[in-house]
C-alpha cells in the first residue's frame, strides 16, 4: 500500500510536466502575443519587450526557463517573493511552485490570482458536488429499487433531460423563471447564500443526472447477482439486502466517476461563471488564454493537473475500502 502510494505520487511529476509542456507548445503555436494591440508596435519597442521577457532567446532556452518557473529554480540575489515554497540549498536559495507574475494584470503574481479566485469556484463546485451526489445517488437508488415503475421511468426521463440540456441553456432559463419572473433569487453576482442557489443548480444538474444513471445501473447489476439471492434466502428484508449487501458493489461505478467530476467542479466551469458573473477561476483561465498570458495559463494548468491526479488517486484508494479484493502492490 505504501509503495503504491509512493509510486502514484511520484508518477504525478512526469505527468504534470507533460501536460505543462503540451500546453506551452500549444500556446506557442497559436498566433498572437500578449503585447498585441490594435496598433502595430514600432519594431524597436517590440524588440525591447522581447528582450525584457526573454523572448529573443532560442525556444529551448525559453522552455527550460518556463519549466524552472513552474517547478523549482534557484533565485536571484535580489529576488523577493512570498509565493510558493522556498528553502536553502547550501548558499543558494531555491523556490518551488512560484508561477511568476501575470503579464496582463501587472504587478500581480499568478499564485495570488489563483488564491483569490479559486474560493469562488470551489465554493460553488463543492456545494454542487454534494448536491449532485445526494440528489443523483438517491434518485438512482430509488429508481433501481422500483425498477420499471412510474418512479423509475420518471426519474430516468428527468436524468436524460439533465444530460441533454446544456448548462448555458439551463442557466438562463432558471434566471428567467426564478430571478426575473418570480423575483425569488438574485439573477447574478457574488453575494449571500441566495446568490449561490441558481449557479449551484445549473452546475450540478448534469452531474446529478449522470450519477443517477450510474447508481441505477450499478444497483440493478448488483441486485441480480448470486450473493443478493443468498442474502434474500437468509431471510433478510429488502432494506437490509440493499443497505448491507448491495450498496457497496452498486456504487463502485459512481465512485470512479466522482473523482474527475469533483476536479472539474472545483476548477469551475466557465459557462456558469460567465452566466452568473462569478469571479471564479474558470473565468480567469479562459481570459488568460485569450490574453496569451502565458504564466497565468501555465500556472492554472499545472495546478489543475496536479489536482485532478490527486483526486484520481483518492478515488483509487477508496476502491480499496469498498472492495476488499483490491490490493495495492
Amino acid at each position: 500500500m505504501l509503495s503504491f502510494l509512493l509510486r502514484r505520487l511520484l508518477l504525478i511529476v512526469p505527468m504534470a510536466l507533460l501536460v505543462v509542456t503540451l500546453t506551452w507548445g500549444l500556446i506557442r503555436i497559436a498566433p498572437g502575443t500578449f503585447y498585441d494591440s490594435e496598433k502595430k508596435l514600432p519594431p524597436a519597442v517590440e524588440a525591447n519587450i522581447k528582450k525584457k521577457y526573454g523572448l529573443d532567446k532560442p525556444w529551448y532556452y525559453q522552455y527550460f526557463i518556463m519549466l524552472g518557473n513552474v517547478t523549482c529554480r534557484t533565485m536571484a540575489e535580489d529576488e523577493t517573493t512570498l509565493n510558493g515554497i522556498q528553502f536553502n540549498v547550501g548558499s543558494a536559495r531555491v523556490k518551488c511552485f512560484d508561477f511568476g507574475d501575470s503579464l496582463k494584470y501587472e504587478g500581480q503574481s499568478v499564485n495570488e490570482i489563483i488564491r483569490r479566485h479559486l474560493p469562488y469556484s470551489a465554493t460553488i463546485g463543492i456545494i454542487a458536488y454534494i448536491l449532485a451526489l445526494i440528489v443523483g445517488g438517491s434518485a438512482g437508488l430509488f429508481a433501481a429499487l422500483r425498477q420499471n415503475s412510474i418512479y423509475d421511468y420518471g426519474s430516468m426521463a428527468l436524468a436524460m433531460l439533465g444530460l441533454s440540456v446544456p448548462n448555458f441553456v439551463l442557466g438562463p432559463i432558471l434566471v428567467l423563471i426564478f430571478a426575473l419572473g418570480l423575483y425569488m433569487v438574485p439573477a447574478a453576482r457574488w453575494g449571500g447564500i441566495l446568490n449561490l442557489i441558481l449557479p449551484v443548480i445549473t452546475l450540478s444538474a448534469i452531474y446529478a443526472a449522470y450519477i443517477a444513471r450510474l447508481t441505477r445501473a450499478g444497483m440493478l447489476e448488483v441486485m441480480r447477482s448470486d450473493y443478493i439471492r443468498t442474502a434474500r434466502a437468509k431471510g433478510l428484508n429488502e432494506t437490509s439486502v440493499l443497505l448491507k449487501h448491495a450498496i457497496r458493489g452498486g456504487i463502485i461505478p459512481v465512485v470512479s466517476f466522482t473523482g474527475p467530476a469533483l476536479a472539474a467542479l472545483l476548477a469551475g466551469t466557465v459557462v456558469v461563471e460567465r452566466i452568473f458573473s462569478i469571479p471564479g477561476l474558470g473565468n480567469i483561465f479562459i481570459q488568460s488564454v485569450l490574453n496569451r498570458d502565458e504564466p497565468l495559463t501555465l500556472g492554472i494548468v499545472a495546478f489543475l493537473s496536479v489536482l485532478v491526479m490527486l483526486l484520481n488517486l483518492i478515488v483509487d484508494i477508496s476502491y480499496g475500502f469498498l472492495d476488499p479484493r483490491i490490493r495495492y502492490e
Binding site: D226, R229, T230, A231, K234, G235, L236, N237, R248
Partner: peptide, 28 residues
C-alpha cells in the same frame, strides 16, 4: 412476504451452485 422471511434462513435454508459468486465479496 414478512412471514416467509421468518422461514427463510431459519427453518428452510439454501446453498447454491457457485460458492464463488454466492457469498458477498464485499463483506467479511
Amino acid at each position: 412476504i414478512d412471514e416467509v422471511r421468518k422461514i427463510r434462513g431459519k427453518r428452510i435454508a439454501m446453498i447454491f451452485q457457485d460458492p464463488m459468486t454466492s457469498l458477498n465479496p464485499f463483506l467479511k
